[in-house]
Nucleic acid binder design. Structure first.
Lengths: 205, 205
DNA sequence: GTTCTTACATACATTCACGTATGTATATAA
DNA sequence: TTATATACATACGTGAATGTATGTAAGAAC
């Protein structure tokens, strides 16, 4: 049917395949997802898919890498800026919860990375990357919270861990039971509760 | 080889299959797990498996149902008792974090239930059960925290949600990156941080 | 001891998804 | 205008996992 088109169309096909792959993998998991489903969702055949990507694993890893950056960057950017540390962390959590509910790409790439690809050793590269990302994330938060007025007994490392687990916990709880609550609506009160448990009540961060 | 044995041996075979199935499914996910792997782990053939269970889905659901009760009961029992509410919730979180790291069955059944079985509609029964469990859990915690001295602005529902997300977040973060921290060792400080963010500082719960 | 049933093991059929090989039409370069 | 490379579609081979059908030895009932 649709024969050779321009190079821009090829890029669009590739992009559509990445978006479709992310949705398929996030919905069904890596093992249960089928490349026929990905191709159908993208409106092409499996031949097109194998033209752009060598195999299932490369498709999955490429989708995570390329789409994660653009979806997550504006959220993580909240950790930088001139505001006081506690304020930045709060803003980050609120942005995280909001993106989780409102941004389909953000939600899908997060669900896929959290659900993991156990049973698929060919994705080990992506998983070690995730490990590194997690540790860099904790380091960044530790530095940030080290400059914040934490209440006594709370180390910056523990505070960073609490922030990470709060974000992950909200995400997986809502992904598992979407009817339980609304991350976007309760984002502020949840973030406040987390930070209130960590920071000194009189500290302005 | 091993021919007909006593009825007790049959029960032991069934039990071994359930334990093996839980480990396989938790490690590889429902879709990627193979029944040959389950049988091999249990030390029997696939014939034995199909003698005790009708298909893959029933095996998985039975494993979750039967093993979840005995592994999780002692943890959830911490929510009951004569102690003040905040103390009970703290004890529950500590017991949860400890069981997560120390009790293999607890960890596996939790990992399997969290990772979910998306892409496997035949497990819908188990997932609706999970939804019901989650809502009952939130209801129980809401009642419990409704009788606790919460700080102003924190509703019992939000507090219950914070406890749930803290437990889930710690679990998935550690399952994804086991080297990041030790739930059992940091259990107390994490639980204290959560409750400190929710309860009035002067309240003894 | 015969028979029946249980508790498996073994062998087979079928499906299904992956990866490959090949065909085809179009843009581009010469 | 011809040749070549690109961007797919189509058709095929293959393996792995599921489920089924059948075989078989051992306890239980009589």
């Amino acid at each position: 049917m649709s024969m050779r088109r321009s190079a821009e169309d090829a890029a669009a096909t590739r992009r559509a395949l990445l978006v479709a792959a992310l949705a398929e993998f996030a919905e069904s998991g890596y093992a249960a997802a089928t490349l026929a489903g990905v191709a159908a969702r993208a409106g092409v055949t499996r031949g097109a898919l194998y033209h752009h990507f060598s195999d299932k694993a490369e498709l999955c890893l490429t989708a995570i890498e390329e789409l994660w950056a653009e979806a997550a960057m504006p959220v993580w950017a909240r950790l930088d800026g001139p505001e006081p540390p506690v304020r930045r962390v709060t803003d980050f959590l609120v942005a995280f919860f909001t993106a989780l509910e409102k941004d389909g790409t953000f939600r899908e790439v997060y669900a896929l990375s959290v659900r993991g690809a156990e049973g698929a050793p060919e994705l080990a590269r992506g998983l070690t990357d995730k490990q590194a990302i997690m540790e860099r994330w904790r380091g960044q938060l530790t530095d940030l919270l080290g400059a914040a007025p934490l209440r006594p007994g709370v180390s910056p490392r523990t505070a960073a861990l609490a922030v990470i687990t709060a974000a992950n916990g909200t995400a997986v709880t809502w992904l598992a039971c979407p009817d339980l609550f609304s991350p976007a609506r309760e984002a502020r009160s949840l973030a406040d509760a987390v930070l209130h448990g960590l920071a000194r009540p009189d500290g302005d961060g």
